[in-house]
């Protein structure tokens, strides 16, 4: 038997963090967007243990401020794309600078300097990732997906989809379906 699961990475991550922090009896407060406020000082050993525990889940404690900011940008974008049922109509640049209290120019610079990509590119990748999820897991039609993700047209969505994946959405769906039936047959 093969099960297909649908999960919310953000929620899963929060639960893991909560569990691990509680296990090590660290007083904390989970803030939004991958930030944790720790009330007491934590011993080095305890911190190392937390770091090791979290690494197992591919959760890394980021201490570098720039890295933190980049992570915050990413988290904000992901949250924005995933949390609302429908994408807000305001531009992402506006949203980001409002949320993070930095000028958009500063954010793009810092992002591009430290990653191989631009904020715009990252947004597109994330939106297409969400589109994949909606196509595969929710079995939405392209029209529904383009509405949810605020694309002006289906054609625009599928051309962006093709830019990111090199595939048309229908070819993409076909491949995933085939792959699943193949692995089901092997079981």
């Amino acid at each position: 038997m093969k099960l297909y699961i649908k999960y919310d990475g953000i929620v899963a991550c929060r639960v893991i963090l909560q569990e691990q922090l509680e296990r090590l009896e660290i007083k904390h407060k989970l803030l939004d967007l991958g930030e944790i406020e720790i009330s007491d000082s934590v011993s080095d050993e305890c911190f190392a243990e937390l770091q090791a525990a979290l690494n197992r889940y591919s959760i890394f404690i980021v201490n570098n401020e720039k890295s933190q900011l980049i992570q915050k940008i990413k988290d904000t974008i992901v949250e924005m794309i995933y949390q609302n049922d429908k994408l807000p109509a305001i531009t992402i640049s506006q949203y980001l600078s409002e949320k993070l209290n930095f000028s958009y120019g500063y954010l793009t610079n810092i992002f591009s300097e430290n990653t191989y990509s631009s904020i715009e590119n990252f947004i597109i990748i994330q939106k297409i990732e969400r589109a994949k999820k909606l196509i595969i897991e929710d079995q939405l039609t392209l029209t529904e997906v383009s509405y949810k993700l605020n694309y002006s047209s289906v054609a625009y969505l599928s051309s962006q989809f093709k830019k990111v994946t090199g595939l048309t959405p229908s070819a993409f769906k076909r491949i995933v379906d085939k792959r699943r039936s193949l692995s089901n047959n092997n079981l």
């Binding site: 392209l142 289906v154 054609a155 599928s158 051309s159 093709k162 048309t168 229908s170």
Partner: peptide
């Protein structure tokens, strides 16, 4: 043979 939205298809071609 599959049901294909020709407009979408031509859009890709133009792309």
């Amino acid at each position: 043979f599959e049901n294909t939205d020709l407009k979408e298809l031509v859009y890709h071609v133009i792309d």
